[in-house]
Computed example of a mutant assay.
Amino acid sequence: MTVTDRSALERFRSRVRGCLIGGAVGDALGAPVEFMSLERIRAEHGPDGLSDIVTDSAGVAPVTDDTQMTLFTVEGLIRAAVRADRGVSHPPSLVHRAYLRWLDTQRLPGPPPEPSGWLAAQPWLYARRAPGNACLSGLESPGMGTPERPKNPGSKGCGTVMRSAPFGLYPQAWATPEAVFDLSAECATQTHGHPTGYLAAGAFAAIVRALVDGADLRAAAAVALDLLATRTGHEETTAALRAALAAADADPRSPDRIERLGGAWVAEEALAIGVYCALSYPDPDEVRRALLLSVNHSGDSDSTGSICGNLLGTWHGETALPPDWVAAVEGRGTILELADDWAMEQTQPTHLHGDHGPPLRWLRRYPA
Rank of each mutant, 00 (worst) to 15 (best):
M1A: 13
T2Q: 15
T2F: 07
T2I: 12
V3A: 12
L9M: 12
R15C: 08
L20V: 08
G22N: 01
G23C: 03
A24G: 07
V25L: 11
D27R: 07
A28P: 07
A28R: 06
M36G: 00
S37E: 10
S37H: 09
L38R: 07
L38M: 01
L38E: 01
R40F: 04
A43P: 02
H45I: 02
S51G: 15
S51F: 03
S51Y: 02
V54D: 06
T55H: 00
A58K: 10
V60A: 01
T64C: 05
E75N: 07
A80T: 08
A81N: 03
A81P: 01
A84M: 04
D85N: 04
D85F: 06
G87D: 03
V88E: 14
S89W: 04
S93F: 01
R97T: 15
A98F: 00
Y99S: 07
L100N: 11
L103H: 07
Q106E: 12
G110S: 02
G110T: 02
P115V: 15
L119Y: 10
L119S: 12
A127V: 15
R128N: 13
G132W: 02
G138A: 00
S141G: 04
T146F: 08
P147Q: 04
P147K: 03
K151H: 03
P153V: 09
G154V: 00
K156C: 14
T160W: 03
T160G: 15
Q172V: 15
E178M: 09
E178A: 14
F181V: 01
D182V: 11
A185T: 02
E186K: 08
E186A: 13
E186M: 03
T191L: 11
H192E: 02
H194L: 15
L199C: 03
A200N: 14
A201S: 15
A201Q: 12
G202Q: 00
A215L: 14
L217R: 03
A220T: 06
A220F: 11
A221D: 10
L228E: 04
G233S: 01
E235Q: 05
E236N: 14
T237K: 03
T237I: 06
A244Y: 11
R253Q: 15
D256S: 15
L261K: 01
G262L: 05
A264R: 05
A267P: 08
E268N: 11
L271K: 12
G274C: 13
C277H: 12
L279P: 09
R288S: 03
R289G: 01
R289T: 05
L292W: 10
L292V: 10
L293N: 12
V295E: 06
S301N: 14
D302P: 07
G305W: 05
C308G: 10
G309E: 00
G309W: 00
P322N: 10
E330I: 10
G331E: 05
G333R: 13
G333N: 09
E337D: 13
L338A: 12
D340N: 07
D340A: 13
D340W: 06
Q346W: 13
T347S: 11
Q348C: 13
G354T: 14
P358Y: 05
L360N: 09
R361C: 00
Y366Q: 00
P367F: 06
A368K: 09
